[in-house]
């Protein structure tokens, strides 16, 4: 099985973030592999360990941080990495990324595309589904379990509105995974050392055989006008001390003050 895995460099959401004049203050931010993509990487490596899969990872993004992320994936067990780096993509949206990924897919011969269900910076949850539509491939999103039946068939489960949905998937296909599918392994020191020596194929749009126009850089479907700091909810009162007294007081307040009971 030949697997293409997509990973995105995203801002570390655990760090504080500030908005000034409609823009995010970038000082002090750090960048990491998107959490859901770590699950996609782990899924691919488990398939490789059990079923002899080939694993190729692609990340579209600028700079050193992307290479660090690819090397982290190498240290986890990914075999090959591609970075797509082109200044024309700096304002790309999900449709543009999907068209670039379409090009990457078409250059190889992949049986399965594994992606995160959502990027932590956009929280869109769109790119994988759009890619599948563009490629005319079947797609299951929000996947929490994959079982290989044979070379061209998978049993897949996803979280739906009314429970766990079970599907039979025929390859090639696009699957986007939820964090619940597995616990990504931590790269070991030895793996990190080896990863340093592994090559990364770096391509721009021209080398990928396309142009900014062809992937839609000039015709965005939407534009972010401004970022706004959300209203922060203020903590109210904290009650410490004798549990019996405190619980009674809070219940009274819920009835008489908050009118919530």
């Amino acid at each position: 099985m030949n697997i293409l895995i997509t990973v995105k460099k995203v801002v570390d959401v655990e760090l504080n973030m500030h908005v000034r004049d409609g823009a995010i203050v970038t000082d002090g931010l750090q960048y990491v592999m998107n959490a859901w993509d770590e699950n996609a990487v782990e899924t691919a490596i488990q398939l490789k360990e059990k079923h002899k899969a080939e694993t190729t990872l692609v990340s579209i993004g600028r700079g050193e941080d992307v290479q660090k992320i690819i090397r982290r994936a190498y240290a986890m067990g990914i075999q090959k990495g591609i970075q797509i780096d082109d200044p024309a993509l700096s304002d790309a949206d999900a449709f543009v990324y999907a068209r670039v990924l379409q090009k990457v897919y078409e250059k190889g011969s992949y049986d399965l595309v594994l992606m995160g269900k959502q990027a932590q910076d956009t929280d869109n949850g769109q790119t994988g589904i759009i890619l599948a539509e563009l490629l005319g491939l079947p797609c299951v999103s929000n996947v929490i379990g994959i079982q290989v039946v044979d070379n061209t068939h998978l049993k897949v489960s996803r979280v739906g509105d009314f429970g766990t949905e079970e599907l039979d998937v025929t390859l090639p296909a696009v699957i986007t995974v939820d964090v619940a599918i597995n616990t990504p392994r931590l790269p070991q020191t030895r793996g990190l050392m080896m990863a340093k020596k592994m090559a990364i194929e770096t391509l721009n749009l021209a080398k990928l055989g396309t142009t900014p126009e062809a992937v839609g850089c000039n015709a965005p479907k939407s534009r972010i006008l401004q970022f706004i700091a959300p209203e922060t909810r203020k903590g109210g009162r904290k009650f410490e001390g004798d549990p019996a007294a405190v619980a009674a007081e809070v219940v009274q307040l819920l009835v008489n003050e908050a009118k919530a009971l």
Binding site: V11, V13, M17, V19, I24, Q120, D121, T122, D123, S222, R223, I224, L225, Q226, F227, I228, A229, P230
Partner: peptide, 11 residues
């Protein structure tokens, strides 16, 4: 977006 850390106004 960004786990509720920001709001985006989008045209």
């Amino acid at each position: 977006a960004i786990t509720n850390k920001v709001l985006q106004r989008i045209r």
